[in-house]
């Protein structure tokens, strides 16, 4: 069943066409990869889906509801969470408090502190941050702050999460762990994942389907095997 439907989305910044007629749909419970060089428009696409950036054209619907004109907080409450490539932790709050706010305000809207704490702890356990729950978020290492980004998106009670380069800077072992974690989240929470990743191996390994963007234009879409064999992709990536 389709959970996210993106149709003909376009976005221009001044004269720069960041996205042109992007179309794809994501089935519930799948992992969908976004591929492309720097500046291909991947992060812009996330911004458009999550409501931070207003598109110039096209439409997006999530779980059957159109997202046009909705604010980011409204979109989040519909069950769509996101992480930021450049991390944005609530630095002076503890790791646990970071996820508690998420649980209180996100789609779950857990008003009681005890319930929000429980939901928050579960999200921290999912990403392996439970032992650091009482530390200030600002004191975490970058890779742990990336984990916190995921935990915060999970704690909102999202059914679909947009993960923006959460593996950048991780060691090979950590990448393997993170891959395992994402598979487990899909299995246990029935989570749908839309992921941007430069770590190619991980992306191929994780994704059920992949969309390749080049300068804002979709050039290929399909299973990882189809995409790597695609002529356009080969041209862009290997010249």
């Amino acid at each position: 069943m389709t959970i996210l439907e993106v149709q003909n989305v376009s976005k221009q910044f001044g004269g720069l066409k960041a996205l042109q007629d992007v179309c794809f749909s994501v089935n519930e419970g799948t992992i969908f990869g976004l591929m492309g060089a720097n500046g291909a428009g991947k992060t812009t696409l996330f911004g458009v889906i999550a409501g931070q950036i207003r598109p110039n054209g096209g439409s997006i619907s999530f779980a059957g509801k159109p997202l046009a004109g909705q604010r980011p907080d409204q979109i989040c409450r519909l069950g769509l969470g996101r992480t930021f490539q450049i991390v944005r932790p609530f630095g002076n709050l503890t790791v646990l408090d970071n996820v508690i706010v998420s649980a209180m305000y996100g789609a779950a809207r857990t008003h009681r502190l005890a319930d929000a704490t429980q939901a928050g702890r579960r999200a921290l356990e999912d990403v392996g941050l439970a032992p650091l729950a009482d530390q200030l978020a600002a004191s975490l290492t970058l890779s742990n702050q990336k984990r916190l980004e995921i935990a915060r998106a999970l704690a909102t009670g999202a059914r679909l999460v947009l993960l923006d380069e959460v593996m950048a800077g991780l060691t090979a072992t950590e990448v393997a762990e993170m891959t395992e974690t994402l598979f487990r989240l899909r299995r246990e929470r029935g989570l749908t994942i839309l992921i941007i990743e430069h770590v190619m191996g991980a992306l191929m390994n994780l994704s059920d389907r992949i969309l390749v963007l080049d300068h804002g234009v979709p050039i290929a879409m399909g299973s990882p095997e189809q995409v790597v064999a695609d002529e356009n992709v080969l041209k862009v990536y290997f010249g």
Binding site: F90, S102, Y105
Partner: peptide, 16 residues
């Protein structure tokens, strides 16, 4: 507090 720490992130986790 979330708004004070990071307004964009606060909005992204559902804070109006």
């Amino acid at each position: 507090a979330a708004i004070r720490e990071n307004e964009v992130a606060a909005e992204a986790i559902g804070v109006p």
